[in-house]
Simulated assay, not measured.
Amino acid sequence: MERRIHKLGDHIDTDVILPGRYLSITDPAELGPHCLEGIDPAFAGRIRAGDLIVAGRNFGCGSSREHAPIALKACGIHAVIAESFARIFYRNAINIGLPVLVCPAFAAVAQDGATAAVDLGAGTVTCGGHVFRGESLPPTVMAIVAAGGLVPYARGRLAAAPA
């Protein structure tokens, strides 16, 4: 499925993904409208469910707030593709079920407003007839993302375990 791209630059930190004044909010539906408000107050209003963020180096740097990937997911972002991620953001995104893909070649050429198709299992992005290979997510990580995050994944595994 083709998804619309929102292109961002390097070093997008968690303080601009979700400004600190919203950290007392726990309902994801209330966090989504404030997504990337630190860069562009109108950003969340332009998102259609299933859109992509494509960014440069070190996406999600800064403080280790789990609220940042929650806000992205609640806003309607399907996945974040970047040249690289801050380690804690990458792990937090997986833990809450937000797909992330390291794909430097695509991040370098992606254009804001263009469309692309993402195959997380294969680690590929297809855009304009070109296929870009990134780092595929291991099967267990894919299962966590598919379950909606680490907590639903663990609950499902516990429920399926023999008594």
Rank of each mutant, 00 (worst) to 15 (best):
F106S: 07
K7S: 07
D112A: 11
D51V: 06
P152L: 13
T115N: 05
G50W: 01
E2F: 13
R48G: 04
L8M: 11
K73D: 13
E66H: 00
G148C: 12
L120N: 09
G76T: 10
P33S: 06
G156R: 15
P99D: 12
P33Y: 01
A161R: 14
D13R: 01
H34A: 04
I47K: 01
H130P: 00
I81N: 09
L52R: 05
G9K: 02
T115P: 00
G113S: 11
V80A: 06
A86M: 06
R133A: 14
T26P: 00
A110M: 08
V80S: 07
P69T: 04
L150N: 01
G60L: 03
R3Q: 14
S64R: 10
F59C: 10
E66K: 00
C75D: 08
E83H: 15
A116M: 09
V54T: 13
Y22I: 04
G76P: 11
A42D: 14
A29R: 15
D15N: 14
R4L: 09
K73P: 13
R157A: 14
F106C: 08
K73V: 13
A143N: 09
P19G: 04
A117Q: 15
A79C: 14
G45N: 10
H67R: 02
F85H: 11
I17C: 06
M142W: 01
A108F: 07
P69A: 04
T124L: 02
A71E: 11
F106D: 07
A116F: 08
P28K: 13
A107C: 08
G56C: 05
D40P: 06
G97Q: 12
V151N: 01
R133L: 04
L31Q: 12
A74F: 03
T124S: 08
V141N: 08
G45C: 10
G60M: 03
L101H: 10
N92M: 03
D10W: 05
R133Y: 01
D40K: 03
C127N: 11
L52G: 07
P41A: 10
T126W: 10
I144H: 10
H67K: 02
A161G: 09
I144Y: 10
F85C: 11
